[in-house]
Each structure stands twice: as structure tokens, then as C-alpha cells.
Amino acid sequence: MRSARMKKKGRRRGYLNPSFAFAMPGTLVYSLLLMLPILFAFASSFTNWNGLTINLENLRFIGIDNYSRMMEDTALKTAVGVTLFITVVVVLAVNILGLGLAVILKNSGRMTNIIRTVFFLPYILSSIAVSFIWMAIISYTGIINSFLISIGLDDFIINFSATKWSSIFWICVVEIWRSIGFYMTIYLAALQGVPQELYEACVMDGSGKWSRFIHITLPMIVPQITVAFLLSVINELRIYDVIFVLTGGGPGTSTQSITYNILTQSFVNWRSGYASAMAVALCVVITIIAAVSMKISKKLEVDV
């Protein structure tokens, strides 16, 4: 009774509901830094904005022109191809190898704990730093080539940025090396959640190691596989910094990813409206992939 009366009194005097008051700072920061830019990007994707001018006279609403232009953009088509290729390779590699490592390192011990940490370490470094480390190793004047030259194997020196495919190969290697520890950790946690008894029941039923993996481990960790798969797909579809440091999108523009292309359009060619349209399209694609894989996972998921 008393609190109800106080509430009423409070409202009459024009006080805010305390829960709103507490949520306000966060909501404000979130809106200013995230929601507003997203809405702004969405709005500007229908304009010819160049990203610089604030003179509204030159700003024109051009409808879906930016979106239809994407269909004919050959640079974008290359970028989509490169991004999809890297995504498929890296997603498969980090998930399969990550799960494999998790299975090997499942039982804790001093040595396995050290190995787990070693695999996880690259993930806590920034991808720019990781890329520079790899540059120091694989660049033309890097450690590998210096070593090869010093032992007289000049014929075997690597020039990773010489061709499109060798560049993509090394981008994939660096991406896999950087993120595999993270996915291994997700799978380690997943494996530890599978009840030991199920394995024992499976042993009693006459199964071998492989059959236990197929019949128990995999079905039991479907939710974590979905999470890892989704995170890796989203990460790779947005790949930018490793490419920026390793190849700069080259040779030529042959290793530009979608995000790389968006940033080039926005800050090199100053076509922010068009870049925004591409960003919106990428966002929609990622959302669709996420929704579909969640749906599939829900079907496969095991209710315990």
C-alpha cells in the first residue's frame, strides 16, 4: 500500500521511474555510438553523399540506385569472391581443427594446460599486431627468406604477395593461426559439458573411439558448433585488418575483401552513400546466415 502510494506521489511530481533512470546513461551511449550511426548509414545508403560535405544542397536522394549499382560493380564482385573463399576455408579450418585440438587437449594436465594457453595467446593480440608479426616472418625480407638465403637455398625463397592465390593462402594461414585458439576454447568447454556416463554407456554398448565421437560427442555439442560456426562466419565475412597489413588488397585489387572494398569506396573514393549501401547489404546477408543456421541448429539440438 505504502509503496503504491509513494509511486503515485512520485509520478505526480514528475519523477522518472528509477529503472528508466538507471538505464538512461547506457541507452544514451548505445544510441549515440551505435544505433544512430546505423540509422544514419541506412539513410545515407539512399543518397549520393560523399562523406565530406555538410552542404545539404548537393545531397540528393537517389532511391535504390546505390543498391542496383552493386550488381554491376566488378571490384565488388571480386571482393565478394575473395571474401567467400577466405570465409569457407577459414571457417572450415578453425572449426574442424579447433574441435580436433579440443578433443586432443580435453583431459587437463600440466602439459595440456600449457598447450591450450599457447594456442589461445594469438587471440588476445590485436589482429593488426598478429599481421605485423607474420609480415616479419613471411615478407620478402622476412625471417624465413633470410634463413633460406643464409643456408644457400635462394631458389626456395617465398614471395607471398606475388600472386593473388599465394596472398590469399597466407591471409588464410594468418587468420586460422590467430583465431583457432578461441574456437578450441569454445569446443573445450562444450566437450567438458558432455556427461562422462554417456561415453561409458557407449563403451558398454560396444563402440570404438570414432563411433563415440560421431554418436555422442557431435550430437551433444550441436549448440556450441552453431555458436562457433556463426562467430567464425561473421568474423570472416568482415575480414579487413589482416588483409590491410599483409597485402593492402593487392596485387592490384585482387585480394580486397568486402569490408576492404567498403572502406576504399568510403574513404578513398569518397562515395559514402554507395559504401553505406554495401555495408547494409553485408549486414542483411550476415543476418540471414545467422537466422538460417540458428534454425538448423534448433532442429539438431539435443534436449537433455
Binding site: E197, A201, C202, G206, H215, I216, M220, V302
Partner: peptide
């Protein structure tokens, strides 16, 4: 275990949930 021809019922049943 599989060649001993022994079956076991576990305390928590250990049925395969999937």
C-alpha cells in the same frame, strides 16, 4: 568392455538424449 558381453545399468540411466 565390448568383448566381455556384459551390460550395465547406470545410476543416472545414461540414456542417449538425442
Amino acid at each position: 568392455p565390448k568383448d566381455r558381453n556384459i551390460a550395465m545399468v547406470f545410476q543416472n540411466y545414461a540414456l542417449y538424449p538425442h
